[in-house]
Design a protein around this nucleic acid. Structure first.
Lengths: 340, 340
DNA sequence: TTGTACGCGTTATCAG
DNA sequence: CTGATAACGCGTACAA
C-alpha cells in the first residue's frame, strides 16, 4: 500500500505543528507569510494531497452518490452516466454505479448496497414501477434524497427527469399518418413501465385524433429487447395479417422486427414502415436507416445529477419538480411512404 | 444529511462501552453471550451499519480501485465494466470509473483524479500507446499497481489481459481466403494501438502464407468509428478500385463501410464481403448479418480485476503475467461466398 | 502568529 | 469478560 504524505509529515519536517500546516495550506490570513511559503514548498516537495477519507469522516459526509440503472450495456444509459459524471465531478462528488439487470431483486439489493456505502443521494431509473415503492419512500424519509430519471415512479414525490414520451409518441404516430399509412400498429413495451404506458397512450390518441381504426390487434406487446421484437414480428408475419406501419416502443424491438421483415422477403418501408424510439447509434446504419426519437441522454444525466445535488447541498431544497426535456423525431427512410 | 447509528449510540443505550459493543458485533469469543445478544438486538433496533469511511481511515485503505477507459458508450467497454464490477463487489472494493474520451490529456487528468482519491490500484485501457508511459511507471513505482486490458502498453511491466488479436485476425483473413475471395484488403485501426498493429500483422501474415498479393492498397487506415469507415469506403468506391473482401479493424468501421456499400448499390457479400472485429450486438441485426470476432468482454473485465486484486491483496504478489483470453470467429452471411 | 486538544467512528491493545 | 485509551488524518476552537 502506498504511503501518502500527511500534515504530520510536513509538520515534522518543518518542526512546527500540524495546525499551522493545516492553516497554511488553507491559505488563511492568520499565518506568517514566511511560514506559509515554507509549508507550501514542503507540501509540494512531499507531494502532499489531503486525505479525502479523513475529510469525509470529519465532515460526516461521504461525498458519494449512488446510481441504479436497469443496465448500462446499451449506449442509452452509458450516455446518461457520462452526463451524470460530468455534473458530479464539477461538484466534487463520487459516483457509485450499480446495475439491476432488469431484476427487481437486484434493484433492492443495490439500494441496500448504496445505503451501506452511505451515499448522500440516489439517482434511479426503475426496473419496474411499483415493486420497490416502499423502499424508495423509506430512503427519502430517512434523509437520502432520490431523483428518478427516464423510468420514473409516479407514486412517489421526488424530482424527476423525463422526456415527454406521450407527445413524442403522438408525433411519431402522426408522422406515419401524414405519410398516408393506414393500418398502423404499435409494438408496446411492458405495462409496468411509465414510459411504456405513455408511449402507448400517445399512439392511441394520435390514432383517435385522425379517426383511424383501433382494434385489439392495434397494440402488441413486444418487450424491450430485439429478440422479442423479432419473435413477435415473425408470429405476425405467419398470421399474414400485416400492418402498413409499426411504431415500436424502442429501437432494439424495431431492429428485431426489421430483421424478421427482411428475412421474410418483405420490404421496408414499401410494405411495412417502421419507427423506433430512443435512437441507438445503429439506427442510422441499418438498411433502411431507422426513423427514431432521439433523446437528450447526456443532458438527462446532467439534469438529474443537478437536481439531486440541489436536494443535498441546499439548506432548504426546492420542492420536487419534474423536468421534461425536449426530444427530437429523426425521420429516415424506414418510415417514408415511397408511393406519395 | 442522514443520521446513522454508531457504536456509541448502542453503547449509551446499553450503558456499556463502545469497545464491548464492537467486540460483540464482531462476534468474538471473549464476550458474555448475554451481552452479545443484547448488543445484537440493540444494533438491529437502531439499524446499525458499520461506517465504511471510519474503517477505511483506520485501516489506511481506500478499498477503491480506479478504472480508465477510452469511452464506455459502446457495449464493448460496458460489458467489461460489468465484469470488473462483479469481481470487485465480491472482494468488497468500490470502483471509480473515468473516461478518457479518446484523449491523452483526459487520460492524464484521470490518473491524477484517481490518485487524489487514493485508489489502491488502477485498471486501464489506453487511449494511445506511449503517450503517458512515464505516468504509468510512476504509479507502479509509487505503489499503485496497474493492470492493462484490451489496449495494453507493451513497454511497461505489468499484468495484462488481452485476446490474441494476431491469431484471430489471421483466422478471420484465412476464413476469407478459404471462401475464395482473391482481392482482400484490410481497414486498419490507428497505429498507436497495439490491438491495431496486431490485427494488421495477422492479416498480412495470413495473406503471405497463402501467397496472395499485397500492395500499398492492401491496408487502408479507417480509424475506429463508423463515420470514418463510411468515409473511407466511399472514397474507395469513387476510385472504383474495389476489393472482393475487407477485413475491418472493428465492427463500427465495418458497419460504416457496409452503409457506404449499400448506398452505392453494391452488394454484400456478392460484390464485397465484410468481416468485423469485437462483435457488437448490432452485427447480427444488419443485413447481411456481419461476420465478426466475439471477444469475451465480461470475462476480460473479471480477469483484469482479479489480477489487480492479486497485486493489492497478496503479501508477495506473483510476477506480472499476460493473460490471453480466447475469442471466437462468428461466421455470418457478410463473408460467405455465394458463388461456391 | 502558533501550538494544544478534541472529535469524526472504528478497532486493537492493555489493564482490570 | 469488560472498560479505558490510542490511533488513523484532518480541521478548528481555544489557549498561549
Amino acid at each position: 500500500m502506498k504511503k501518502y504524505a500527511t500534515l504530520k509529515d510536513i509538520a515534522n519536517a518543518l518542526k512546527i505543528s500540524t495546525a499551522t500546516v493545516s492553516r497554511a495550506l488553507a491559505d488563511r490570513w492568520d499565518v506568517n507569510p514566511n511560514t506559509k511559503k515554507l509549508v507550501q514548498a514542503e507540501a509540494e516537495r512531499q507531494n502532499y494531497k489531503p486525505n479525502p477519507i479523513a475529510l469525509r469522516l470529519q465532515n460526516k459526509r461521504s461525498k458519494t452518490i449512488g446510481l441504479i440503472v436497469p443496465e448500462f450495456r446499451s449506449s442509452f444509459f452509458s450516455n446518461i452516466i457520462a452526463g451524470i459524471q460530468q455534473a458530479l465531478d464539477e461538484a466534487g462528488f463520487q459516483l457509485l454505479i450499480t446495475q439491476s439487470n432488469e431484476s427487481s431483486e437486484n434493484e433492492e439489493r443495490n439500494i441496500k448496497l448504496l445505503e451501506n456505502n452511505m451515499v448522500e443521494g440516489i439517482l434511479i431509473s426503475l426496473v419496474k414501477e411499483g415493486i420497490n415503492n416502499e423502499h424508495y419512500q423509506n430512503l427519502i424519509d430517512s434523509g437520502i434524497p432520490l431523483v428518478f430519471f427516464n423510468r420514473v415512479c409516479t407514486k412517489i414525490e421526488a424530482p424527476k427527469v423525463i422526456i415527454d414520451d406521450y407527445k413524442m409518441a403522438f408525433f411519431a404516430t402522426e408522422h406515419l399518418i401524414y405519410n398516408k399509412f393506414k393500418k398502423i400498429i404499435h409494438f408496446s413495451g411492458p405495462d409496468e413501465l411509465s414510459v411504456s404506458r405513455e408511449r402507448k397512450r400517445g399512439f392511441l390518441d394520435a390514432m383517435k385524433k385522425h379517426k383511424l381504426t383501433i382494434d385489439n390487434s392495434s397494440v402488441v406487446e413486444a418487450g424491450i429487447f430485439s429478440d422479442k421484437g423479432y419473435d413477435v414480428m415473425k408470429i405476425l408475419i405467419d398470421t399474414s395479417n400485416l400492418p402498413d406501419a409499426i411504431f415500436c416502443f424502442n429501437d432494439p424491438t424495431a431492429l428485431g422486427a426489421l430483421k424478421a421483415i427482411k428475412e421474410a422477403g418483405i420490404r421496408c418501408p414499401e410494405d411495412i414502415a417502421l419507427v423506433g424510439f430512443s435512437e441507438t447509434e445503429i439506427a442510422q446504419l441499418v438498411e433502411p436507416p431507422l426513423t427514431s426519437i432521439q433523446q437528450p441522454t447526456f443532458e438527462m444525466g446532467e439534469t438529474a445529477a443537478k437536481l439531486l445535488l440541489e436536494q443535498i447541498t441546499m439548506a432548504t431544497p426546492p420542492a420536487p419538480r419534474t423536468v421534461s426535456l425536449t426530444a427530437k423525431l429523426n425521420i429516415r427512410k424506414s418510415s417514408i411512404n415511397k408511393h406519395l
